[in-house]
Design a protein around this nucleic acid. Sequence first.
DNA 1: CGAACCCTTGACAGAAATCAACTAAGGTGG
DNA 2: CCACCTTAGTTGATTTCTGTCAAGGGTTCG
Lengths: 239, 239
Amino acid sequence: MRDNELCEIRRLPLFRAMASENFTALTRAAYDQTFPAQVRLIEEGAAADFLHIVVEGSVELFAGWQGRETTMQVVRPVSTFILAACMKDAPYLMSARTLEKTRVVLVPSVDLRAIFRIDPEFALATISELSACYRSVVKHTKELKLRTARERLAAYILRQAKLDNNGPSFILPMEKRVLASLIGVTPESLSRAMKSLQDVGTKVDGQRIIITDHKALEAVACPTPLMDDPEQHEQGLRP
Amino acid sequence: MRDNELCEIRRLPLFRAMASENFTALTRAAYDQTFPAQVRLIEEGAAADFLHIVVEGSVELFAGWQGRETTMQVVRPVSTFILAACMKDAPYLMSARTLEKTRVVLVPSVDLRAIFRIDPEFALATISELSACYRSVVKHTKELKLRTARERLAAYILRQAKLDNNGPSFILPMEKRVLASLIGVTPESLSRAMKSLQDVGTKVDGQRIIITDHKALEAVACPTPLMDDPEQHEQGLRP
DNA sequence: CGAACCCTTGACAGAAATCAACTAAGGTGG
DNA sequence: CCACCTTAGTTGATTTCTGTCAAGGGTTCG
């Protein structure tokens, strides 16, 4: 594994405080790999053998049932995913696939579980990370149950703009059909929702979203920290 | 606090393995209280001062936004709730109210955070508990996005019957309007969904649900461990 | 150049919310 | 003990929203 990545991983909240020798032990057993787009990394129901860390690219977490499929989360660098399954040694609840060319570091979950038993700092960091993950899903669920499709889209746009330095425009970080599934609608419905937001301060030009009237958009989304503020782990660490 | 409750709390996975003196320290600072029905225990957005443990009765976790409201979870004895907010010292994402006369034990979250720093066993148990909480919400979210209202109701009925010794009938453990909100529909829609399930092996008599054709109901719900199996913490500890 | 694939648009169907009325059950106070 | 009131639940009529199906434009990639 390249030193470069090791440093970035080490900087993650999850690994920042642990003892050096334990970090070394963890990453010695780990390996990193680069995948092309649309590669399945994880199949839901399988045993949780590896903690995954996205170093470059992006990964879609999704779930299926009876021929239906839905996007649960999109993970960007540098972040981990499926920590909970690893910690409980339980089957993955979600599948994962790369959305683009993606570099992933895989840490064997047996090593993880061994090390959080001997490194209190790592155990504390794990608690913090899991709490953040939990709170993220709760926010996602609240949004699904409390906001309409149009409101969810408006809120997403405001969140994404904020992450992108709060500029007046940004490029969607995923395909629209993935975004549609993430916010819980069909691509057709997303398309119509986008259109309907053009009356309230939004312009769409391909993958670019332009906010022309921030106040008007906020009037639709009514953002609140209890649904819209990202948990610390969510945006990942930018290089 | 009564010895009786102390024992039950001590038996919880979260507290089972920790050192005795730490458990004593935790519970010395704690106090227990009994509330009538419909009392607000927690307001979303408030600081997470106490870990709550339901000892008797039941508590509804719910969230609101813009005048709308939705039930996120119903907690029954003996279980904890809002652990994640306590661990991160972050604002509660959900409100809580008693559904009936309920006895709750309150553990100051400062003490919690102090003790998981010095008691590795407690830290490990916390990791396990948080992972289970995370996985529960993921399952709830998957269900909302992948199943229709009718399918969610069918799945709920099968899960609840299983918890109730897999008998041919059971009593709904909450009011129907609360169940409706939990599965993400209006009370009117729940009522119609119940009716529509009468064609596929279900009978309803007030609060009692009778399963007359388990196979037929399963054909609607298509239960899968990845959505329908409870995480260990969910059903609580029965006395 | 053709073949996918993504996105959009339109027409339609289906699901669920809303609004309103009515029943039934439980609790309160006379 | 009964009349009254409140509230949960049901049912029907209607509207709104979202999904489905089908078609067409535009892009990318082999």
